[in-house]
Design a protein around this nucleic acid. Sequence first.
DNA 1: ATAATTGCGGTCTAAAAAGGCCGCATTTGT
DNA 2: ACAAATGCGGCCTTTTTAGACCGCAATTAT
Lengths: 77, 77
Amino acid sequence: MIRQSDKSNLKKFGNRIKEIRQAKKLSLRQLSYACDIDNSKISKIEKGQINITFTTILQLARALEIEPSELLLASFE
Amino acid sequence: MIRQSDKSNLKKFGNRIKEIRQAKKLSLRQLSYACDIDNSKISKIEKGQINITFTTILQLARALEIEPSELLLASFE
DNA sequence: ATAATTGCGGTCTAAAAAGGCCGCATTTGT
DNA sequence: ACAAATGCGGCCTTTTTAGACCGCAATTAT
């Protein structure tokens, strides 16, 4: 049921989040504080372990000070 | 718990989907067939009634032949 | 007038996200 | 050497999505 392409895309998305977070020199806990999402959850997102919702994407974008659309800039399958 | 801004953003996203679908002259059922998502669900998405996941966003983008990032082009709160 | 299509809401189950907390090994800083 | 910070995984409960199907009023086409 869980498609392989989905897993791949989730990982790409997670990597993107991680890159941006690190570029801003934020720790998981700092980002966690900024977007009110548990740090362990962000860790899972970055690892592509969870399929986050639209609103969570927006929360991350806000905290990372980036346009939501920018977060989806990746070559998804 | 359900934030007002979330509802607003979900509606904006839904409207965007609807606009693109209509611009392509697709009915809910046609789009449903193209992305393998039940037409009633798409209706709810367009109405901003559900908070869809990342993978669902990608499914819609694929079916609408648009970049995922383009789907998030809106002035979210 | 009749038939077909369309948008949409409701219902149900199973799966998964949300939200939150804890602990710990490793890394980093003092 | 010690203390603090960090990434990360596990666990738990509640809430919600996913996925699928049905029915119907209203619109559109024949």
